[in-house]
Design a protein around this nucleic acid. Structure first.
Lengths: 167, 167
DNA sequence: CATTTAGTTCAATTATTATTGAACTAAATG
DNA sequence: CATTTAGTTCAATAATAATTGAACTAAATG
């Protein structure tokens, strides 16, 4: 594994921490992103990240639970391999928006404890209405993405990265 | 402060913790949501939450920094008061989506470290294209909200909570 | 069926983050 | 200008979360 990839793995660890995952989960994802194998073994991950068995065991389970990673098993091989899931963008977004809807519910609950309306109840009503609306809107957004994605992805691919294919 | 409100404050503390804030920040927000004053003093918050001066000082600063709370100062009164900001839903959403765009950039960076394309580069390209597209799309979504919000909010207000006004 | 391999579990440790509390600054008041 | 009030700062402590490592289970292999 090259130095720049190792460095990226640590960076990914830090970055994914910002999204509420553990650093180790970020490192594993980073490793799965930059490594050149279709799927990698428990031991390979352990070696590459210099982490303990227990940590790899627990963290891969977490990543599988949230759907970012899937276990792969091969015939005639008792090991488990791991790879990045082909998680659809839609399901990732929907999960995130569910959190917003939950946030909206906390606001509603607070509003309902008040005797009368004021500036704050107006605000919580607006914000919670918005998040609940957004929860409904997400399907339309994703339909639009489905219609446009082919062009967008092509354009992105030409502008940024993936240039190696054409050399 | 009634028992159910005190309980709500603790619940809000736990809930906001899920969104990456500290429990104390959640409690302060919860308090500002359910208390019946337009704005509340440092000391009142301290008393209501039974927390230390230092903690209230630090946490209110945090909440002000991220825009959820604003300090209010009154003429002829040397105290600082605090209240929930009228933060627009649009700016909250834009901030959130910025995080997704950052996530997209981490994926791009990983993809660019690879020698050749495979299943994973295809996936990271799609996901990062999506998040970057979403970053652009947010303005259209918010425009739609502006057009529809009046009706949605009214409906929400009738269906859920805020019934006290009419009694 | 003994041995090796692959992974799990969980108590102990380490690292990180939040909160307190006491000493401090700065402004307002008498 | 001494005193009170309002809030800040920050080192110490407490609470929480992540990671290790060693003992374990369970399946596969010879």
């Amino acid at each position: 594994m090259t130095e720049d990839k190792l460095q990226y793995i640590e960076e990914a660890g830090m970055a994914f921490e910002l999204f509420g995952m553990t650093r180790m989960a970020g490192r594993i994802l980073g490793y799965l992103i930059v490594c050149d194998n279709e799927s990698v073994s428990f031991n390979e991950i352990m070696g590459a990240l210099k982490a303990s068995k227990g940590s790899i065991s627990g963290t891969t389970k977490q990543l599988i639970a949230v759907g970012f990673v899937e276990p792969v098993s091969l015939p005639g091989d008792r090991k488990t391999y791991f790879r990045i899931s082909n998680l659809e963008v839609g399901s990732i977004l929907r999960e995130r928006i569910k959190l917003f809807v939950k946030f909206a519910e906390v606001l509603d609950k607070g509003r309902n404890l008040k005797e009368k309306n004021d500036r704050v109840t107006d605000w919580t009503l607006e914000v919670s209405s918005f998040y609940k609306w957004l929860g409904d809107e997400v399907d339309l957004i994703l339909q639009k993405w489905e219609r446009e994605k082919e062009n967008i992805i092509k354009e992105n691919s030409e502008n940024y990265g993936n240039k190696k294919k054409s050399t």
